[in-house]
Amino acid sequence: MNELDQALDQLNREARDSHAPLTDARAKLMAAVDAEAALPQLKPRRRRLVMPVAAAAAGVLAITAVVVQVRSDEPAPQAAVPPASGKSSEAPSEAPAVTLVAAEVLNKAADLSVGAVDQPVGPGQFRYINKHVWNTRGQSTGVSVDAPDQTIKGSTYLLELRYQTWIPADEKQTWLERREVLGPLKWIGGTSPESETTPPPIMDTDRGDRQGACGDFFPKSKPKKVCGDVTDSAQPAFYRNLPNDPDKMFAKLKDMTKGRGSTPAVMFHFGLQILEDGLMPAEQRANWYRALAKIDGVRVIETAANLDGRTGIALGIDGEHERRDLIIDPKTGEFIGVRSVAGEHPYDAWIKPGTVTEFSAVSTGVANTLGQPPAN
């Protein structure tokens, strides 16, 4: 069975024993996308984000940028997921057929997104962004300089949160961000049993309302937030400065990540992070998908639900430490969430490969009152 057939095996049980030509297989896949066929569902797995104990307080803002999704009525995700290949995403040429299928799905999502427009934000109204997330929290004890051969010890948990943001029509005016802790920490792994592990504390920055012009919710943080910063994807100015052309968007992603090598995995990660910020205008999203389709090594993973239970198609790039997945609604082309799955050699050695370490559901709308979600 070739690599494309292996991918289709995860996506369409009817194709499990098929020896049809590649063109036939590809056609069947896209037909399944059109029909939103019922594909094998897997519960969420997990991602990594563990801090040294001493650095926990200083690192909380970085941590809250990571999301992990888990259904609130389910145990911490530990389901068996198709493991990452273990091959670096820097060698995408090893699976060209799989990459082609992923490109077709992204381009189809782009076609579905063409003509989509956002509801306008009028005077006195607010752009509303709702993110339901599971964040990774953890702690570790470092290796002593006197005993460098010691094994690092630690534990990792998931924390369910909701971030809501209200952005006024005039972005220079006061924004509101509300953070809520939705449930207790869930233990997903450690070098000691859960009963012998002390959970990390819930931080002050995990909850509460904060206001600030241009979204400057933490005015004492460094570097200082600049209103209208065209390099900050959490501000509308970034998108006004973003070219609306797939080739130029791809070049923009490459330039943004050059300090990290501009590898396919890094470019894909940044591309998803920008979508997850929830501010990309609908008219730009189609070409953003087309830009992501140009990244080598992206493959169709499976049908997957986001944190709020909306079903979509997950696409990602395999990596030694983790895989980052984009989840798209196949009926509308809408971006509905992101997840991260531990690879064969997770960042935290005590995490099982195939564990979900990030998950999110993102939705947007227009609110009439600061602090009140849209009626619909």
Rank of each mutant, 00 (worst) to 15 (best):
S72F: 07
A56G: 04
L106E: 04
A97C: 02
A79C: 10
V66F: 14
G86L: 03
G59H: 11
K108Y: 02
E74N: 05
R48K: 08
S113I: 02
E74D: 12
A35L: 09
E74L: 10
A103Y: 05
A54M: 11
A58R: 13
A62K: 09
A110H: 03
P77V: 01
A91I: 10
Q41Y: 13
V60H: 04
K108C: 00
Q69L: 11
V68M: 07
S85G: 07
A79Q: 13
P82C: 01
A79V: 06
P83G: 00
E36P: 01
A38N: 11
A55G: 09
V101D: 12
A65G: 12
S85K: 00
G86V: 03
M51P: 01
D73N: 11
A37P: 00
A65W: 06
R46Y: 13
V50F: 10
V60D: 09
G86A: 05
L61I: 05
D73I: 05
P40T: 14
A91G: 02
A58Y: 14
A54S: 14
Q78G: 08
R46E: 11
N107G: 01
R45L: 10
P40E: 12
N107V: 02
V53W: 13
P75Y: 15
V66Q: 15
A79F: 08
L112V: 01
V105Y: 00
A35P: 02
S113H: 06
A54E: 14
V114Y: 13
L100K: 08
P77A: 03
R47H: 10
E74G: 05
V68E: 05
G59R: 10
G86P: 04
V98R: 09
P83E: 06
P52W: 04
Q41P: 15
A103H: 04
A110R: 01
R45W: 03
D111C: 03
V98C: 07
A102N: 03
A57T: 14
S88D: 09
S113F: 07
K108I: 02
T99H: 09
S88E: 07
A57D: 15
A38Y: 07
L106G: 02
A95R: 11
L39H: 02
